[in-house]
Amino acid sequence: MTYQWHWSVFLERSPEENGTYLDTLLLGLQTTLATAAAAWILALALGSLVGILGTLPSKSARVLTAAYVELFRNVPLLVQLFLWYFVLPEMLPFAVGSWLKQLPDASFVTAVIGIGFFMSARVAEGVRAGIEALPAGQRLAGAALGLTTAQVYRHVLLPQAFRLTLPPLTSELLNTIKNTSVALAIGLAEVMARARAMQEFSFQVFEAFTAATLIYLAINLVVTLLMRALERRVAMPGSGSGPP
């Protein structure tokens, strides 16, 4: 290797913003966190809804949710982001399309929607699996007590299913955070985009990507620890998912 290391490059002035390269990376971190948080809220809400619908007795609900899941799960995220960003505005009426394109944070909004929908399909599968993993007697017992279907879900099935689903949901949350890096393709200035810009300007490629690696690792370790704590807090005694 004939590489010139310059770790001090982070403290040099970045041409992009008024600040150092380190400042631009931290701005990227803010964007990554904001995008991941908003996309995760969307994914969790949509995914829970779709996952629950998929376990209802109604056949049409099952078919529709299966179609939803397969559509958003089987098309690569990059392709979906391109469709949301470049294709959707062209298919809308001209005025609406132009308004969308001129939104000040178009790439942020598109990234949240694109990643949110993509991840919602995976959340939906997790939630559905969690509900289906419960013994059939739970649902029947609820019905036998005279609860409506909504009440059975609210008071019997979901409290157990979400606890069961927590570990896989942690993985999906981590995936959501990592998937924000794909949004650099639609011009979102998140950590990866900032690192790329930094290596292009300065040619200090290894320093830039080392910083990006450490940032992702740090965020995801913190998230993992928090989720572990949450898992312990809500664990059901005797369910096998909590401490003995």
């Binding site: 650099l184 011009g187 985009a193 810009a197 300007f201």
Partner: peptide, 29 residues
């Protein structure tokens, strides 16, 4: 728009600030 990481986007940011043009500068991949 300009391409991320190019000298062009750097100059664009500088001119935008120097001449107070209020451009919304987008960075493409």
């Amino acid at each position: 728009v300009s391409t991320a990481g190019t000298t062009n986007i750097r100059q664009l940011h500088e001119i935008n600030a120097a001449r107070s043009l209020g451009l919304r500068i987008l960075a493409a991949r």
